[in-house]
């Protein structure tokens, strides 16, 4: 088990290297020289060239990629010139590990820029995750048990409506009615947990609900289908034949087996969502990774974009690993090797 996790983590590192290489190559495939954004209106060809050099954009692609990867581990200096560091340390910008590069648009290190935004996206993703699992799986179980009834049809129908509705509509409707018109909750905004846990939770409620409603819709159908499939299994008949009461058959023998594929889906969805919910964050002006992804893409902020891609990829790789390990715990037939 431990060896398996270690091996998967090493594999994950290789995967991240590959992701960074691909995004790096794409970076240079475009016609944009990031150094152009370093000086704004005062730009002269000479100044651009000087900054190109200082940021290392004059080197070959592979060498730059190497410097970038080393920078993530060790940190790096801009410009990377040991002689200058001795003579004029004040002209050098240091970017400490894990250094994801320097963004000329925001005149900040990418890491510094991303750091405060990660907890925002993570809180949102986890709050939404908890809500959608309770709503989606719960409704799915009810629908499966009452198959064919009015309640089943209503649950499946309602879930279809939310599934068809883009988050931008759900989000705006919730904002408009729940927060502004009926004032059931204060206008959503992000408050760090460390500042006030209660406000943090209040602020999270609507954006998380927006996401949860969308995702829960899929989970209702998923859970319903898997439970119905499991309900046909022979071993449930065995359990009933040995006298296991109905409720216990459901919780002990049915749910555990039906859970496995849901865990897989949930893990991957959560992993992807940790990297930021682009639209929802925009609607509720949440300063998360999703919002940053939009603005950096609009401003040709390539170093920030690459940084976000790497962070998101890391989340997804970890989520995948967690799912696989959970799988092994839930289903003894799965051997981790």
């Amino acid at each position: 088990m431990f060896a398996y996790v270690v091996r998967r983590l090493i594999g994950g590192v290789f995967l991240l290297l590959l992701v960074s290489l691909v995004t790096f190559v794409l970076f240079f495939a475009g016609p944009i020289n990031p150094a152009k954004f370093t000086c704004g209106k005062q730009c002269t060809p000479a100044l651009i060239e000087q900054n190109t050099k200082a940021l290392g954009y004059d080197k070959p692609v592979l060498e730059q990629w190497g410097t970038y990867v080393v920078g993530i581990v060790k940190g790096r200096d801009f410009p990377d010139d040991p002689a200058l560091k001795k003579t004029a340390p004040e002209t050098i910008a240091h970017c400490s590990a894990p250094c994801l590069g320097y963004s000329p648009q925001t005149s900040q290190n990418v890491t510094t820029e991303l750091q405060p935004r990660i907890p925002v996206s993570v809180s949102l993703a986890i709050a939404a995750f908890i809500m959608w699992m309770i709503i989606g799986v719960g409704a799915g179980i009810i629908a499966a048990l009452l198959r064919g009834s009015v309640i089943d049809k209503a649950l499946v129908g309602v879930s279809l409506i939310f599934y068809a509705m883009p988050t931008v509509v759900t989000g705006l409707l919730l904002y408009q009615f729940v927060a502004i018109k009926w004032q059931l909750v204060p206008a959503p905004q992000y408050v760090p947990f460390s500042q006030s846990p209660v406000q943090w939770l209040q602020g999270l409620f609507l954006p998380a609900l927006t996401l949860a409603l969308y995702y829960a819709a899929g989970y209702v159908r998923l859970t319903r289908a898997f439970i119905l499939e499991t309900l046909g299994e022979d071993y449930l008949r065995t359990a009933k034949a040995k006298g296991v009461p109905r409720v216990r058959v459901l919780f002990r023998h049915t749910l555990r087996a039906a859970l496995t594929p849901i865990v897989t889906q949930a893990g991957l969805d959560l992993g992807a969502l940790l990297g930021g919910a682009i639209i929802t964050e925009q609607i509720f002006s949440y300063p998360g990774l999703g919002a940053l992804a939009v603005s950096s893409a609009n401003q040709y902020d390539l170093p920030t974009t690459i940084g976000i891609v790497l962070v998101v990829a890391t989340f997804i790789i970890i989520a995948n690993l967690v799912v696989d390990v959970l799988y092994g715990l839930i289903d003894p037939r799965v051997k981790l090797a």
Binding site: E233, D234, Y235, R237, T238, A239, K240, A241, K242, G243, V244, P245, R246, H253, R256, A257, D331, P332, R333
Partner: peptide
């Protein structure tokens, strides 16, 4: 269900699928 498995019990056909995995 109090009777099942206590007074009357059953053995099923396909042992590959009749036990909870």
């Amino acid at each position: 269900s109090k009777l099942r498995g206590k007074e009357i019990s059953m053995v099923f056909q396909d042992p590959l699928s009749a036990l909870t995995p």
